[in-house]
Nucleic acid binder design. Structure first.
Lengths: 149, 149
DNA sequence: ATACAATTTTGTAATGATTACAAATATATT
DNA sequence: AATATATTTGTAATCATTACAAAATTGTAT
């Protein structure tokens, strides 16, 4: 789901999800914010438009979307799950300093290990951690103060 | 840390960790149980030998070991962190049915993607999910009942 | 349109893993 | 032995996530 021109309502229907107002708004936010938002990020942002929004609805919706495979939950971060509307295989790099999460292209098929013969694989997650280029330079990092945890 | 003949006390000292009784027992358990135990698994088991053991000590110790890179924390499971004394690069497969976690050999170096030029990589995590061979056969699976969540 | 059924949303209360913190205990050093 | 330092312990707090039931919305059939 990358093409903005696709109608969100139809997109949901195509994936067997009834297109409620809340669901469309949450999906819209996810597609417009591919920076791996947390549940709270999503809730805070969408609540500005949908004032009655409940966090439970956000959880329900994200679970629903995940089951329908239109988004993926990431476990790159320690505490919380983050969500990614890009369901194509790719890796995630988490910077230990600024806590930023970067996507990176990777040819996951080359990984295909003989060791998993006989296993039915559903998802492939590639999570790297380390220091991002920006933080390598800036010893004094601004992001780290606001987000260190 | 695979060779059982290595003295655990010395092993800890070599890694800059003071070898307290609790730390040795926890390390001993980890090395003897490479089935990716949870914090509670470790606590329950070691508490049988060290009756005064506190769960906080287990957390402290695991954090210490992880910082010293003698174990690795896995996020293959949804809720909780699991620990692995095998710090060599390898993948983890989580079966959605029986919740079992399998190690698998994988040549992570082949992954090296150009996209990460300039990034300083510390850890590489490979997490697959799906159905394990045992669960593919047994439609009625026993493990799933005890561990489904 | 109207009434009924099914689905979705909401709010609150529980759960459960992890962390904070300070007192108690053990260990090392002089 | 005396003192300083490091470790362990227990309890209380935190925080993301889940459970659950009531309220609101939507769909369907008459």
């Amino acid at each position: 789901m990358t093409d903005k021109s696709i109608n969100l309502t139809e997109y949901l229907i195509e994936h067997g999800i009834r297109p409620s107002f809340q669901r469309i708004k949450i999906l819209q936010y996810l597609i417009g914010n591919k920076d791996h938002p947390t549940v709270d990020d999503i809730y805070q942002a969408v609540a500005k438009e949908v004032s009655t929004l409940s966090k439970t609805t956000v959880y329900n919706t994200l679970t629903l979307f995940t089951q329908a495979s239109i988004i993926k939950g990431l476990r790159a971060s320690e505490n919380e799950i983050r969500y990614d509307p890009d369901t194509a295989d790719h890796g995630h790099f988490k910077c230990k300093k600024c806590s930023g999460i970067y996507d990176f292209a990777v040819n996951i098929d080359t990984l295909q290990s003989d060791a998993l013969a006989g296993f039915q694989i559903h998802e492939k997650g590639i999570y790297f951690t380390g220091i991002c280029p920006a933080c390598m330079e800036n010893k004094t990092n601004s992001k780290s103060e606001e987000e260190t945890k």
